[in-house]
Protein backbone atom coordinates (compact mmCIF):
# COMPACT_ATOMS: atom_id res chain seq x y z
CA UNK A 1 0.00 0.00 0.00
CA UNK A 2 2.30 2.73 -1.21
CA UNK A 3 1.66 6.15 -2.59
CA UNK A 4 4.53 7.06 -4.90
CA UNK A 5 5.80 9.78 -7.14
CA UNK A 6 8.11 8.71 -9.97
CA UNK A 7 10.18 11.35 -11.74
CA UNK A 8 7.50 13.97 -11.13
CA UNK A 9 7.97 17.42 -12.57
CA UNK A 10 5.66 20.40 -12.34
CA UNK A 11 6.15 23.35 -14.58
CA UNK A 12 4.00 26.44 -14.76
CA UNK A 13 4.10 29.24 -17.31
CA UNK A 14 4.93 32.75 -16.21
CA UNK A 15 3.16 35.75 -17.65
CA UNK A 16 6.18 36.82 -19.75
CA UNK A 17 6.28 33.54 -21.68
CA UNK A 18 8.96 31.89 -19.54
CA UNK A 19 8.33 28.81 -17.45
CA UNK A 20 9.26 27.93 -13.92
CA UNK A 21 9.88 24.44 -12.55
CA UNK A 22 8.11 23.93 -9.25
CA UNK A 23 9.17 20.28 -9.00
CA UNK A 24 12.09 18.64 -10.74
CA UNK A 25 12.23 14.90 -11.20
CA UNK A 26 10.88 14.11 -7.77
CA UNK A 27 10.81 10.51 -6.54
CA UNK A 28 8.89 9.90 -3.34
CA UNK A 29 7.30 7.00 -1.53
CA UNK A 30 4.91 6.87 1.40
CA UNK A 31 3.72 3.67 3.02
CA UNK A 32 1.17 3.04 5.78
CA UNK A 33 2.51 4.14 9.14
CA UNK A 34 5.34 6.15 7.58
CA UNK A 35 5.87 9.65 8.75
CA UNK A 36 7.81 11.92 6.45
CA UNK A 37 8.49 15.61 6.73
CA UNK A 38 9.42 18.04 4.00
CA UNK A 39 11.01 21.31 4.84
CA UNK A 40 11.87 24.16 2.56
CA UNK A 41 11.58 27.86 2.03
CA UNK A 42 8.45 29.53 0.76
CA UNK A 43 8.07 28.92 -2.98
CA UNK A 44 10.30 25.84 -2.90
CA UNK A 45 7.44 23.65 -4.21
CA UNK A 46 6.25 22.10 -0.95
CA UNK A 47 2.57 22.82 -1.60
CA UNK A 48 2.84 21.64 -5.19
CA UNK A 49 4.30 18.38 -3.92
CA UNK A 50 1.38 17.93 -1.50
CA UNK A 51 -1.21 18.86 -4.14
CA UNK A 52 0.13 16.25 -6.54
CA UNK A 53 0.43 13.62 -3.80
CA UNK A 54 -3.15 14.45 -2.74
CA UNK A 55 -4.44 14.15 -6.32
CA UNK A 56 -5.57 17.76 -6.27
CA UNK A 57 -3.22 18.60 -9.13
CA UNK A 58 -1.63 16.80 -12.05
CA UNK A 59 2.12 16.70 -12.63
CA UNK A 60 3.56 18.01 -15.88
CA UNK A 61 5.74 14.89 -16.16
CA UNK A 62 6.38 11.61 -14.34
CA UNK A 63 3.72 9.54 -12.64
CA UNK A 64 1.72 9.23 -9.44
CA UNK A 65 1.10 5.65 -8.37
CA UNK A 66 -0.96 3.89 -5.75
CA UNK A 67 0.22 0.34 -5.10
CA UNK A 68 2.11 0.47 -8.39
CA UNK A 69 -0.92 1.55 -10.41
CA UNK A 70 -0.59 4.84 -12.20
CA UNK A 71 -3.27 7.32 -11.28
CA UNK A 72 -2.58 9.67 -14.16
CA UNK A 73 -5.38 10.07 -16.64
CA UNK A 74 -8.03 8.66 -14.34
CA UNK A 75 -11.39 10.46 -14.55
CA UNK A 76 -12.35 12.95 -11.86
CA UNK A 77 -14.86 10.56 -10.33
CA UNK A 78 -12.24 7.85 -9.81
CA UNK A 79 -9.63 10.27 -8.49
CA UNK A 80 -12.21 11.78 -6.12
CA UNK A 81 -13.09 8.33 -4.87
CA UNK A 82 -9.45 7.44 -4.18
CA UNK A 83 -8.86 10.80 -2.53
CA UNK A 84 -12.00 10.46 -0.42
CA UNK A 85 -11.13 6.94 0.72
CA UNK A 86 -7.41 6.99 1.18
CA UNK A 87 -6.06 10.53 1.41
CA UNK A 88 -6.77 13.28 3.87
CA UNK A 89 -5.60 16.82 4.40
CA UNK A 90 -4.73 19.11 7.24
CA UNK A 91 -4.24 22.72 6.22
CA UNK A 92 -2.35 25.57 7.82
CA UNK A 93 -5.54 27.71 7.91
CA UNK A 94 -7.68 24.78 9.11
CA UNK A 95 -10.28 25.34 6.35
CA UNK A 96 -13.21 24.29 8.49
CA UNK A 97 -16.65 25.01 7.07
CA UNK A 98 -18.04 28.08 8.82
CA UNK A 99 -21.44 27.92 10.57
CA UNK A 100 -21.31 24.13 10.66
CA UNK A 101 -20.77 22.51 14.03
CA UNK A 102 -17.57 20.71 14.90
CA UNK A 103 -19.44 17.44 14.48
CA UNK A 104 -20.67 18.38 11.00
CA UNK A 105 -17.19 19.50 10.00
CA UNK A 106 -15.67 16.25 11.18
CA UNK A 107 -18.08 14.04 9.27
CA UNK A 108 -17.56 15.98 6.00
CA UNK A 109 -15.38 13.21 4.47
CA UNK A 110 -18.03 10.59 5.31
CA UNK A 111 -20.53 12.37 3.08
CA UNK A 112 -18.36 11.69 0.05
CA UNK A 113 -17.52 8.03 0.55
CA UNK A 114 -19.74 5.45 -1.07
CA UNK A 115 -20.48 3.67 2.15
CA UNK A 116 -23.96 3.83 3.56
CA UNK A 117 -22.93 2.19 6.83
CA UNK A 118 -20.30 4.85 7.46
CA UNK A 119 -22.86 7.56 6.72
CA UNK A 120 -25.31 6.08 9.19
CA UNK A 121 -22.62 6.02 11.87
CA UNK A 122 -21.38 9.49 11.08
CA UNK A 123 -22.43 11.01 14.40
CA UNK A 124 -20.78 8.32 16.49
CA UNK A 125 -17.63 8.28 14.38
CA UNK A 126 -17.32 12.06 14.39
CA UNK A 127 -17.97 12.27 18.13
CA UNK A 128 -15.34 9.59 18.74
CA UNK A 129 -12.84 11.42 16.55
CA UNK A 130 -13.49 14.66 18.41
CA UNK A 131 -13.03 12.89 21.72
CA UNK A 132 -9.77 11.42 20.39
CA UNK A 133 -8.38 14.93 19.81
CA UNK A 134 -9.58 16.11 23.23
CA UNK A 135 -12.68 17.98 22.12
CA UNK A 136 -15.40 15.89 23.74
CA UNK A 137 -18.21 18.26 24.66
CA UNK A 138 -17.43 20.63 21.79
CA UNK A 139 -19.51 18.72 19.26
CA UNK A 140 -22.00 21.54 18.72
CA UNK A 141 -19.50 24.37 18.72
CA UNK A 142 -19.10 26.22 15.43
CA UNK A 143 -15.56 27.09 14.29
CA UNK A 144 -16.15 30.80 14.92
CA UNK A 145 -16.34 30.07 18.67
CA UNK A 146 -13.23 27.86 18.84
CA UNK A 147 -9.62 28.89 19.42
CA UNK A 148 -6.99 28.32 16.74
CA UNK A 149 -5.68 25.25 18.52
CA UNK A 150 -9.18 23.83 18.88
CA UNK A 151 -9.96 24.47 15.24
CA UNK A 152 -6.82 22.61 14.18
CA UNK A 153 -7.83 19.73 16.46
CA UNK A 154 -11.20 19.64 14.72
CA UNK A 155 -9.32 19.60 11.41
CA UNK A 156 -7.21 16.66 12.62
CA UNK A 157 -10.35 14.81 13.69
CA UNK A 158 -11.84 15.50 10.25
CA UNK A 159 -8.70 14.23 8.54
CA UNK A 160 -8.76 10.95 10.44
CA UNK A 161 -12.47 10.19 10.96
CA UNK A 162 -12.65 7.84 7.97
CA UNK A 163 -9.29 6.20 8.73
CA UNK A 164 -7.46 7.20 5.55
CA UNK A 165 -4.18 5.56 4.57
CA UNK A 166 -2.40 8.86 4.09
CA UNK A 167 -2.57 12.23 5.81
CA UNK A 168 -1.03 15.22 4.09
CA UNK A 169 -0.43 18.07 6.50
CA UNK A 170 0.53 21.44 5.05
CA UNK A 171 2.19 23.43 7.82
CA UNK A 172 -0.46 22.42 10.32
CA UNK A 173 1.07 24.47 13.12
CA UNK A 174 1.84 27.52 11.01
CA UNK A 175 -1.08 29.52 12.36
CA UNK A 176 -0.64 28.52 15.99
CA UNK A 177 1.41 29.90 18.84
CA UNK A 178 4.44 27.92 20.04
CA UNK A 179 2.90 26.00 22.93
CA UNK A 180 -0.32 25.20 21.08
CA UNK A 181 1.74 24.20 18.04
CA UNK A 182 3.67 21.65 20.04
CA UNK A 183 0.48 20.18 21.46
CA UNK A 184 -1.13 19.91 18.04
CA UNK A 185 2.02 18.40 16.55
CA UNK A 186 2.24 15.75 19.24
CA UNK A 187 -1.44 14.95 18.76
CA UNK A 188 -1.07 14.67 15.00
CA UNK A 189 1.87 12.28 15.25
CA UNK A 190 0.10 10.29 17.93
CA UNK A 191 -3.17 9.78 16.12
CA UNK A 192 -1.62 9.05 12.73
CA UNK A 193 0.67 6.46 14.30
CA UNK A 194 -2.16 4.87 16.23
CA UNK A 195 -4.18 4.56 13.02
CA UNK A 196 -1.08 3.46 11.03
CA UNK A 197 -1.73 6.28 8.57
CA UNK A 198 1.16 7.51 6.44
CA UNK A 199 1.92 11.14 7.23
CA UNK A 200 3.55 13.76 5.07
CA UNK A 201 4.31 16.84 7.09
CA UNK A 202 5.25 20.00 5.29
CA UNK A 203 6.74 22.42 7.75
CA UNK A 204 9.16 25.28 8.27
CA UNK A 205 9.94 24.01 11.70
CA UNK A 206 12.93 21.66 11.65
CA UNK A 207 12.22 20.63 15.23
CA UNK A 208 8.80 19.36 14.23
CA UNK A 209 10.28 17.75 11.15
CA UNK A 210 12.71 15.82 13.26
CA UNK A 211 9.78 14.15 15.05
CA UNK A 212 8.96 12.20 11.86
CA UNK A 213 10.68 9.04 10.66
CA UNK A 214 12.20 10.58 7.53
CA UNK A 215 13.00 14.16 6.61
CA UNK A 216 13.43 15.79 3.24
CA UNK A 217 14.35 19.23 2.06
CA UNK A 218 12.79 20.70 -1.02
CA UNK A 219 14.99 23.27 -2.65
CA UNK A 220 13.97 24.94 -5.92
CA UNK A 221 11.88 21.93 -6.87
CA UNK A 222 14.47 19.31 -6.03
CA UNK A 223 13.75 16.87 -3.21
CA UNK A 224 16.68 15.58 -1.16
CA UNK A 225 17.11 14.02 2.30
CA UNK A 226 17.37 16.68 4.99
CA UNK A 227 20.16 14.74 6.58
CA UNK A 228 22.46 13.21 3.96
CA UNK A 229 22.68 9.45 4.10
CA UNK A 230 25.54 8.17 6.18
CA UNK A 231 25.63 11.21 8.41
CA UNK A 232 24.19 11.18 11.93
CA UNK A 233 21.59 13.50 13.37
Amino acid sequence: MTLSLRGVTKTIPLGDGRQVDLLRNVDFELGPGDSVSVVGRSGSGKSSLLNILGLLDQPTGGSVELDGQSLLGLPDRKLSMIRGRHISFIFQQFHLLPRRTALENVWTPLAHIRDRALWRQRRELAARALARVGLAGKEDAVPETLSGGEQQRVAIARALVHRPRYVLADEPTGALDGETAHGVMDLLLDVTRSQRAGLVLVTHDVQHAMATDRQFRLNEGTLAPLVPEGSTR
Binding site: D76, R77, S80, G84, P109, H112
Partner: peptide
Amino acid sequence: VRRAFGASQSH
Protein backbone atom coordinates in the same frame (compact mmCIF):
# COMPACT_ATOMS: atom_id res chain seq x y z
CA VAL B 1 -12.80 21.77 0.89
CA ARG B 2 -15.46 19.23 -0.08
CA ARG B 3 -13.58 18.38 -3.26
CA ALA B 4 -10.39 17.87 -1.23
CA PHE B 5 -12.25 15.43 0.98
CA GLY B 6 -13.49 13.30 -1.88
CA ALA B 7 -16.47 15.08 -3.41
CA SER B 8 -16.45 14.55 -7.17
CA GLN B 9 -17.57 17.13 -9.69
CA SER B 10 -20.83 15.27 -10.10
CA HIS B 11 -21.33 15.27 -6.34
